[in-house]
Design a protein around this nucleic acid. Sequence first.
DNA 1: GATGAATGAGACTTCATTCAT
DNA 2: GATGAATGAAGTCTCATTCAT
Lengths: 196, 196, 196, 196
Amino acid sequence: METPKPPERKPRSDAARNRERLLAAAKLVFARTGPGASLDAVVREAGLGIGTLYRHFPTREALYEAVYRRDIEQLVTLGADASAARDPVAALRDWLHAMIDVVATKKGMIAAFALAADTTSAISARSTGAVTQALDRLLARAVAAGRVRSDIDGTELLLAVVGMCMLRDQPGWQASVTRLIDTLVDGLEVRRTGAP
Amino acid sequence: METPKPPERKPRSDAARNRERLLAAAKLVFARTGPGASLDAVVREAGLGIGTLYRHFPTREALYEAVYRRDIEQLVTLGADASAARDPVAALRDWLHAMIDVVATKKGMIAAFALAADTTSAISARSTGAVTQALDRLLARAVAAGRVRSDIDGTELLLAVVGMCMLRDQPGWQASVTRLIDTLVDGLEVRRTGAP
Amino acid sequence: METPKPPERKPRSDAARNRERLLAAAKLVFARTGPGASLDAVVREAGLGIGTLYRHFPTREALYEAVYRRDIEQLVTLGADASAARDPVAALRDWLHAMIDVVATKKGMIAAFALAADTTSAISARSTGAVTQALDRLLARAVAAGRVRSDIDGTELLLAVVGMCMLRDQPGWQASVTRLIDTLVDGLEVRRTGAP
Amino acid sequence: METPKPPERKPRSDAARNRERLLAAAKLVFARTGPGASLDAVVREAGLGIGTLYRHFPTREALYEAVYRRDIEQLVTLGADASAARDPVAALRDWLHAMIDVVATKKGMIAAFALAADTTSAISARSTGAVTQALDRLLARAVAAGRVRSDIDGTELLLAVVGMCMLRDQPGWQASVTRLIDTLVDGLEVRRTGAP
DNA sequence: GATGAATGAGACTTCATTCAT
DNA sequence: GATGAATGAAGTCTCATTCAT
């Protein structure tokens, strides 16, 4: 990325390169072993020292966040787009489905979402907080359209999805969670009485 | 090798007493530190040897189950009673509220419910399986009365509650979870169209 | 576990029966897991209490000895017979082969022989000492016939066989040990000079 | 958690020094207690943490090998020298005597030789495998000279020595084993008929 | 900045042995 | 005599985290 050829000099302690290597390694290892994988396994994969990992990511959580930030940003963008174009309830539903899909695909990801759902965490405010905001926006639109109730907020909805996805060990979990979330959205919808 | 505590005599071969001591200690320690507390801390609290713990409870899961079995049985009994006496949807709702209350009170308990929710676990079939059955029964009654949909089963409902309760770190979590579960039950309810 | 039918008198605390049960169980377990098997496994197999095992056989060695005493006695008898009937060197060789066969067949047996080979052990003097004596007798006959050297005694020969058989983990060990023992016997034989 | 020994400072990242300390401690402890000594005893002796031991020597076997590697290398060198200079049978005999002497001196050593004798062990191939090769070389020379039979190989000879030395508890064992090995070598020697 | 050695807590487990009932 | 609960030492191994170089 940066000046590739200093006269040879010490290969320049390229911190950025190491950071990337660590992220790539972590993504791989988390996907393989899940969150809670040994940090040693990550640095082994990256071919770097454990100290370097700690310098870049002082906590395991910081690593989670960095690893999945891009995925989360994509998801958020998706939410924004959907929000603009579709029926508000369908948009909300679709976006929640997308979240479940992401968790199903990226094994370590749930940890990042758990961070996002943790309002206590100082770190959550940063990139992951965007997820909550995206949900809030989707909800707000649906509420404004008089389509869903207003007593559940984005943080809570996130809590629901993340919690259910944490127990993803049994076979068929994705179908179950999807059904549950659909039911939850049904519950959110304002009931239209049939009478004139 | 030699009994280091001459003061309190070798009490008696009273296995039952020790078992109780272990359960009490475990309850305390789990409540203090959460599940995942050191088993060593448990025996230290109980004033017994680690071997004794292993004799009575060969796995951590067996200990969870035993520690919370009574609570779970009470909950199940409560479900049966409620089931007999009340409006089926209200009974279901109340029982889910009771579950949340139990988790709110007993910090380590969620681990026992997680076991119950884990259909993979061999141990779950035993006492904890009763929770699923209780839910199934409550659901069945409501379905039979034409009040709720039939596409969600007890296992899934348990998954929802347990999952949400796993993220109980933030303040106000109980209110949030209760609200979410209420919404979920709303979603389960069959919508009655006003006119033929 | 406790006498289920008090009406028909206590079934007589048949110590002898228990002893037999323990021996049978131990034989089985040693054969399955080798010496060093857990004594608990033995009593589990026997359906008795660990205390009972300790009453009958205060040490693991005592158990070895009792379990294999009969086998050893048979072997000793075999030695006596062979000794009477055959060429002394062939008799010695055959008997050593028989020992190896026994070890090959009965996995836990080597421990009993090790006891026999251990001149230090107080217990060895008893039944297992007979093995040494049998070897001494076979050697003595061959020495008397001027067929083998007199500087190796039965204890040492036993040491050789037992030691080699202790490393019986690699495939083909029996053939190797047999070859080695044959070579050893060759070395014992007095060389006959070619002169008339 | 906190450095409990302020007196001796955090010495240096000198891994080599610690490695040496561990080897020295292990040598001492094995000599005192035999192989199978507690690894904890080793680190206690070395004044280091158990983790450090595991970092340097991931398995007990790796430790054996490292502790005795130098001794084994010396022995192997000795074999090479002897092989070049002397009567092949005498060279073989002397080398076997040297092996017995080494075992007699270093109590834990037999474990390292047992590794060498274990053709199954992956680790044996490394430095300890050299022992087998040395024996093979000595044998080959004697065979080539028409002095010994060719049906016993180095692995088997090693098995014989190691096996016999495993039972080194009785007094006078070294003399017995030496005598046995001498007899074995005698058995290996080709018998020369007296007349042309 | 980078490194990785050091550390020790602690998880989990197995057993031999004792001894109260 | 029989029982088996109790005990705790010991052993295995894994990690997160610190810090000297």
